[in-house]
């Protein structure tokens, strides 16, 4: 018996599966698939649909610069992690923000069109937030795998075209 989880697994694997594809692969009818997807969207379980992009493969001069930033913060009675996160996450330059265990508190990913733009963003917008005590910025030099998709994967099908 198919479940909502099956729909999530399938869309997680390929968000471009059509309603018809999803119905064929599960026990749901097309209208049931539409219903389940609408419910999952309304409940905030599915929050968006994005392509996995290898910017380096795009043959253009336009640069896409990304950095991960380690943030340390100091909390006080009036401020918790959620409050700080809200302030940072609102910036469109921020593509992901996570609270992590270990040597630093937040793991932040920032995107911009140039190194200058990203640096300015961190020094002008992030670092001055009063609770932030330290930032360590790592520019991403090369990306090999994103969201479970390996770039430059040369796993060609080398099977015989017909076999027993």
């Amino acid at each position: 018996m198919s479940s909502r989880r099956d729909i999530l697994d399938l869309l997680g694997e390929n968000a471009r599966y059509t309603t018809e594809d999803l119905a064929h692969m599960t026990d749901f009818t097309e209208s049931e698939v539409e219903e389940v997807v609408a419910e999952l969207e309304d409940a905030g379980v599915i929050t968006g649909y994005q392509a996995v992009i290898n910017w380096d493969a795009l043959e253009t001069d336009a640069e896409r610069v990304r950095a991960t930033v380690e943030l340390n913060v100091a909390l006080d009675r009036e401020t918790n992690y959620g409050d700080i996160a809200d302030r940072i996450a609102k910036f469109p330059e921020v593509t992901s923000l996570r609270l992590v265990s270990g040597d630093y508190d937040f793991d932040l990913t920032v995107e911009g069109d140039s190194m200058r733009e990203v640096s300015h963003f961190i020094s002008d917008k992030v670092a001055p937030i009063p609770e932030i005590t330290q930032t360590v910025t790592h520019y991403i030099m090369e990306s090999y795998k994103e969201q479970g998709t390996e770039f430059d994967d040369h796993d060609d099908d080398d099977r015989l075209s017909v076999s027993p």
Partner: peptide, 9 residues
């Protein structure tokens, strides 16, 4: 397109 293959893809 081969649907004639007797091994995993």
């Amino acid at each position: 397109i081969s649907l004639g293959v007797g091994e995993p893809d």
